[in-house]
Amino acid sequence: MTAALACSHLTVSYDGNVALNGVSLSVGSGQMIGLVGANGAGKSTLVNAVAGWSRGRPAVSGSVTLDGADISALAAHARAQHGLLLVPEGKNIFAELTVDENLGLVRAPRDVAGRHVFSIADVFNLFPRLTERRTYKGGSLSGGERQMLAVGRALLAAPRVLILDEPSAGLAPRLILDLLERIRSLVDRGLPVLLVEQNVKAALKVVDHLYLLERGRIIAGGPTTVMKSDARIVEAYLGTLAVDRA
């Protein structure tokens, strides 16, 4: 079976400076894949390359496939139209519009074959909190509510694969786990998700596989159960106490 999202030998360089070096990873159906790494490890570069964003003028090589189809040549908006939906980090809602209006902007594609379709009711079921905020402007929402709104809006576009870029940024620890667990419930129903996170502890609780990115390379990767006790992860991100509790 082909992976929902796969990238192979993805290399990105800016004026000869290599930011991402031969990264390959894949997200299968019903899988939640975590990608962790420190600031500047290349997480954003990877996300941008996969989603087709070009900040500056990077040289990108390698390939990205979505449900087996090569989308490397497509522009960012076209990749989104094909169902590769990215929830960007920060500024990911229309602050001037209400929750309802934000959600109303999205229209599902006509052909939904191979896509995971969600209705507005599904979104409100997933995030009941949003129901109470329907008439509030995006700008007046809390950080957690904004993330819910951004994820909900991406779901309405009927994703094949969902990419979450640092959804925990600026959120209190409790909220992070709550949000990730709700997303995990979608994965259990089949939605493939690539989660890019700095909060390794939280990521470990929900993902199936974890990759560790450092200086543009994947230096470790494997099933969560294995990675939990990987020395590099433990030393750099968790500390002993966390391992005990896990």
Binding site: H77, L105, A154
Partner: peptide, 24 residues
């Protein structure tokens, strides 16, 4: 219209509009 709302999306947040599949 669809065009009016997508134009507004582009105006308010071009990057976000693109991530939702809008061709700016």
């Amino acid at each position: 219209s669809r065009l009016g709302t997508t134009a507004l999306m582009v105006h308010m947040n071009p990057a976000l509009a693109t991530s939702l599949g809008v061709d700016q």
